[in-house]
Amino acid sequence: MPESAPMVVATPADAVDIAQLRDRLAEWMVGNGIAQWLPGEYPAAVVAEEATRGEWFIWRESLTELTAAVRIVWRDPDFWGADDAEAGYIHGLMVAPEYRGRDLGSRIIQFCADYTLARGVTVQRLDAAADNPVLRKYYGAQGFIEVRETQLPPQFHGTARVVLMEKPLAPGS
């Protein structure tokens, strides 16, 4: 992500593009035997509600082309249950397929870390499909530590189990 094109807060008007990008990635996952996301399970109306709350961030290569998106929330009891605590929870980190290999994922994770620290929170958390060793290894290389494996919340589909991961953040890092 060049410095000239930072992540910006998404608006409800971006919801259709975000949902379409997620569906594109879900279709790719299903086609490659990865049971993490399913096409159509995350409708634009839900994304619009979340964007209204300021939870989504996007980066566009141009005015019309959505390059990447990520959702940040501060609590996540659906996934973390009794271990839920204030943290920068990363959800829906997406990079358009045509932008793979440009290190955008790690730059988005750093954006999320900076945003989380700016709020005075020193922990990032996320979840990934337990049966996706490539993604688990990727997040491990980004400094996330596996905390535990658990059932996928019932409102989601695609995989049965997720691994919960967290990363301590140091101010100034």
Rank of each mutant, 00 (worst) to 15 (best):
M1K: 10
P2G: 12
P2A: 12
P2H: 14
P6W: 02
P6K: 06
V8N: 08
A10T: 04
A10S: 04
A10I: 09
P12E: 00
A13K: 09
A15D: 11
D17H: 08
D17S: 14
D17L: 08
R22M: 15
R22A: 14
D23E: 11
A26P: 02
E27I: 14
W28P: 07
M29D: 01
M29R: 07
V30D: 04
V30E: 09
N32E: 10
G33S: 08
I34D: 02
I34S: 05
I34E: 00
Q36D: 02
Q36I: 07
W37C: 00
P39T: 03
Y42C: 13
Y42I: 14
A44S: 14
A45N: 13
V47H: 01
A48T: 05
E49C: 06
E49S: 10
E50I: 05
E50T: 09
A51R: 03
R53P: 10
R53F: 11
G54N: 07
G54M: 07
G54K: 04
W56S: 06
E61H: 13
S62D: 15
T64G: 15
L66C: 09
T67P: 00
A68N: 01
A69D: 01
R71N: 05
V73F: 03
V73R: 15
R75Y: 08
D76S: 07
D76P: 11
W80V: 08
W80K: 11
A82M: 13
D83N: 12
D83C: 14
D83G: 06
A85C: 13
E86G: 12
A87I: 08
Y89V: 12
I90F: 11
H91W: 07
G92K: 13
L93A: 04
M94Q: 15
V95N: 04
V95T: 13
P97F: 00
Y99Q: 07
Y99K: 07
R100T: 15
G101K: 03
R102P: 02
G105I: 01
I108W: 00
I108H: 03
I108Q: 02
F111K: 01
C112D: 01
C112M: 01
C112Y: 05
C112N: 05
A113E: 03
D114W: 09
Y115S: 15
Y115G: 06
A118G: 09
A118R: 09
A118H: 14
A118I: 10
R119T: 04
G120Q: 08
G120L: 06
G120K: 09
V123K: 11
Q124A: 13
L126N: 02
D127W: 03
D131F: 06
N132P: 02
P133T: 12
L135R: 08
L135P: 03
R136T: 12
Y138V: 10
Y138A: 13
Y139D: 13
G140I: 12
A141I: 10
Q142K: 09
G143W: 10
F144Y: 10
I145P: 06
E146K: 11
V147M: 05
V147F: 02
Q151T: 12
Q151C: 14
Q151G: 15
Q151W: 14
P153R: 08
P153H: 10
P153M: 08
P154L: 11
Q155S: 12
F156Y: 15
T159Q: 06
T159W: 00
T159K: 05
A160C: 08
A160D: 13
V162F: 14
V163W: 01
E166Y: 00
E166F: 07
E166H: 09
P168D: 10
L169M: 10
L169C: 07
L169Q: 07
A170K: 15
